[in-house]
């Protein structure tokens, strides 16, 4: 790639997935990025720390705009080129026999999938053998561990000469003369009146009995959930979507729904340990799509909603293009 921003200083506020992906895209174009993060380390207070980490543009078409599917596909090649540990093993979508109609509905709404029978499911996920008769197999999807990916991205940015300053509560107006990329998430809602918070809750389990190789989605008419495998036998079960900016701890209702789904996937998960119960508040615009909002020297990159890892690559690249175009004009 050419480096149209060679030597240009850019201040980024926020070291969640938006800030870090913006930094990666801008430093690849030659910019000298400095990230200013409110908390003391990567992840604290960032809702991307709580993310599922599914790079599932085709599955997400069910219940999201077409743009999510189209723009999300870049994530499948973008992340593996920048952080280690991206697993390209697809997604398996299942439903309990009584919710079979949900599978049909999803098959109609999405593409790039194939039907699998009980044998096919057992071949993909041996621990689920005999439990489901039918499923949808999205072969061309991937997943990552968001926490490892955020840490790896931060390390890559620093290796590249970028700088991350922690414990640093700044606002876009605090910078003179340099372009500012505002990735504060929900904290930017005073500048972005359309932004709202959508609460999400998740559970992390550790199981010795059930191993999965890829994200498994369990469809349900009311509470669909996904289970994403991570290293060391960890399984992340997520996530609720509650229209509320409230960041209080996980409610009993949500915990019961998530754990019930895990148990429905495999009864042996009853013996799994609950390692973590967590909640976060996702920033979202009314159309649930991210936006780049330009105001003078400040570009806000916000509203990633449920699609932080999926959509940040496409928007970070557009951000890079915009800054490059502006820099070329000024030169």
């Amino acid at each position: 790639m050419s480096r149209p921003l060679e030597g240009m200083p850019v201040a980024i506020i926020g070291a969640g997935v938006a800030g870090l992906s913006a930094a990666l895209a801008l430093s690849a174009r030659g910019a000298r990025v400095s990230i200013h993060e409110r908390s003391r380390s990567i992840g604290r207070n960032a809702c991307s720390w709580m993310a599922g980490g599914m790079l599932a543009p085709f599955c997400e078409r069910d219940g999201a705009e077409h743009a999510v599917c189209e723009r999300g596909q870049l994530a499948l090649t973008w992340w593996p080129a920048r952080v280690p540990g991206v697993t390209q093993a697809g997604t398996l979508v299942l439903a309990l026999p009584r919710d079979g109609a949900e599978l049909e509905r999803m098959a109609m709404r999405t593409h790039d999938h194939a039907w699998v029978d009980g044998e096919g499911i057992a071949a993909l996920e041996p621990d689920l053998a005999g439990r489901f008769r039918r499923g949808l197999w999205f072969a061309n999807e991937a997943h990552l561990d968001p926490r490892k990916a955020l840490l790896a991205a931060a390390a890559a940015i620093e290796r590249d000469g970028g700088h991350i300053e922690y414990d640093c509560d700044v606002r876009p107006g605090d910078f003179d003369g340099v372009p500012v990329v505002d990735c504060r998430g929900l904290a930017a809602c005073d500048d972005l009146p359309d932004l709202r918070g959508v609460r999400g809750e998740m559970v992390i389990l550790r199981s010795r009995d059930v191993r999965l190789s890829r994200p498994v989605r369990l469809l349900h008419p009311r509470t669909p959930v996904y289970i994403v495998p991570r290293d060391d036998g960890l399984l992340m079960v997520g996530a609720t979507t509650v229209e509320s900016p409230d960041g209080h701890p996980v409610t009993v209702r949500s915990a019961v729904e998530l754990l019930n789904a895990a148990y429905a996937l495999h009864p042996a998960l009853a013996d799994a340990e609950i390692v973590e119960l967590g909640s976060g508040v996702r920033p979202a615009f009314p159309d649930n799509l991210p936006r780049l909002v330009e105001r003078g020297r400040v570009i806000a990159f916000n509203g990633l909603y449920r699609h932080g890892f999926l959509l940040s690559p496409w928007y970070a690249e557009r951000l890079g293009d915009r800054l490059s175009a502006r820099y070329a004009e000024a030169a």
Binding site: R196, G197, V242, E243, S244, H248, T251
Partner: peptide, 16 residues
Amino acid sequence: RRESGGPSGGQPFWKL
């Protein structure tokens, strides 16, 4: 109940 997760007023979704 479903959409609020609790009785805190002024929820952005409700305003919407």
